Simulated scan of single mutants.
Amino acid sequence: MTTRVLVVCTGNVCRSPAAELLLRDRLGAADVDVASAGVHALAGQPVDPPVAELLAERGVSPEGFRARQLDPAEAGAADVVLTMTREHRAAVVRARPGAVRRTLLLPEAAEAAAAIAREGWPADLPDVAARLAALPRLATRHRGAATAAAAAEVPDPHRQSAAVHRSTVDLLAGAVDTLVTALGTGARPIG
Results as ranks from 00 to 15, higher is better:
45 Q>H: 14
34 V>I: 15
155 P>T: 06
87 E>I: 05
58 R>E: 15
149 A>Q: 09
190 I>S: 13
81 V>L: 05
26 R>I: 07
108 E>A: 13
36 S>R: 12
58 R>N: 15
107 P>D: 00
54 L>G: 08
173 A>F: 01
53 E>P: 03
162 A>S: 10
134 A>N: 02
61 S>E: 11
102 R>L: 06
142 H>K: 01
172 L>T: 06
137 R>K: 09
34 V>G: 13
133 A>W: 03
57 E>Y: 07
68 R>F: 06
171 L>M: 09
96 R>A: 15
14 C>R: 10
87 E>M: 04
55 L>E: 10
171 L>K: 01
98 G>Q: 13
182 A>H: 13
7 V>E: 07
133 A>H: 04
33 D>L: 15
89 R>Y: 00
185 T>P: 09
82 L>F: 02
147 T>V: 03
190 I>E: 03
96 R>G: 05
28 G>R: 11
173 A>T: 03
45 Q>R: 14
86 R>K: 03
5 V>F: 10
41 A>E: 02
179 L>K: 11
104 L>I: 08
111 E>N: 00
36 S>Q: 10
48 D>V: 07
52 A>R: 06
26 R>M: 12
22 L>I: 14
31 D>Y: 12
163 A>F: 05
126 P>F: 08
107 P>F: 03
92 V>W: 08
150 A>I: 13
101 R>F: 12
113 A>L: 10
70 L>T: 08
37 A>K: 03
60 V>Y: 09
167 S>W: 10
90 A>E: 06
17 P>E: 06
108 E>P: 00
86 R>D: 07
25 D>V: 10
107 P>H: 02
108 E>C: 00
70 L>I: 12
51 V>D: 08
187 A>M: 07
66 R>H: 14
137 R>S: 07
120 G>S: 02
183 L>M: 12
107 P>E: 01
188 R>S: 14
181 T>G: 15
151 A>I: 04
172 L>Q: 00
16 S>M: 06
17 P>F: 09
114 A>I: 07
26 R>F: 08
162 A>Q: 12
113 A>S: 04
23 L>C: 04
32 V>M: 15
72 P>H: 14
140 T>F: 04
182 A>V: 14
27 L>N: 10
161 S>E: 05
59 G>Q: 14
111 E>I: 01
144 G>P: 01
116 I>R: 13
68 R>V: 11
69 Q>P: 06
46 P>N: 02
114 A>Q: 10
51 V>L: 02
95 A>F: 14
111 E>T: 06
4 R>I: 14
161 S>Y: 10
